[in-house]
């Protein structure tokens, strides 16, 4: 059954207003867009075959904006949702890498060569993701900062620009979110 496509502009607005179903649909659409864009750009980039995440997000934004026209909301609002989708892509990627590593006899070797704690594995990423969802209930802004910085790799400066606050404010938000998530995952720290 063919569903009439909602413009992403409309989905964004509805999601901002608390429409849960629009938000879900938005995530699905963005996921598809990001994937498509990554494939396109990977082809264009030629031999390197790779493409940076933040650039990917920017390009996708431009692509959708030019398609939907002048009424498309600004970058900052878009990035909030897109970075959330990116979180999912990052976790998927980690999951695939982990599956690849589980090669039985090679597992111990590969753990040896990887410095413990160097790679954040898929399990912890999932926990972080859940903790982020819980955090988003209280404070969407903080969760967004983590999505933008940790999962999508934007710098504090870039995030500050998007959020129209000072870089120091973003740092503080990051530290607050960090403390909160740490508590969710590791429990209350001793005095």
């Amino acid at each position: 059954m063919e569903e009439p496509p909602s413009s992403i502009t409309a989905l964004l607005t509805a999601a901002d207003n608390g429409d849960g179903m629009a938000k879900d649909r938005l995530f699905t659409v963005l996921y598809a867009e990001l994937h498509a864009m990554a494939r396109r750009e990977a082809a264009r980039a030629g031999s390197t075959g790779a493409f940076g995440v933040t650039t990917l997000l920017h390009e996708t934004y431009l692509h959708i904006a030019s398609r939907e026209g002048a009424r498309f909301p600004d970058r900052a609002r878009f990035m909030g949702y897109a970075a959330r989708v990116m979180r999912g892509l990052v976790i998927d990627h980690a999951r695939m890498r982990r599956a690849a590593k589980r090669g039985g006899q090679f597992e111990i070797t590969s753990l040896d060569t990887e410095a413990a704690g160097q790679l954040v594995d898929e399990r912890e990423l999932n926990e972080i993701s859940q903790a982020l969802d819980a955090l988003a209930q209280h404070d969407q802004a903080l969760a967004d900062v983590v999505d933008l910085k940790f999962f999508s790799g934007f710098s504090f400066d870039e995030i500050a620009t998007m959020r129209t606050v000072s870089e120091r404010t973003i740092r503080r938000q990051w530290e607050t979110a960090r403390a909160y998530i740490h508590r969710q995952i590791r429990g209350q720290a001793p005095a």
């Binding site: 990554a38 790779a50 940076g52 995440v53 890498r97 790679l119 954040v120």
Partner: peptide, 9 residues
Amino acid sequence: EPERPVHEP
């Protein structure tokens, strides 16, 4: 930071 699915070109 976690490994990302795509790397900076």
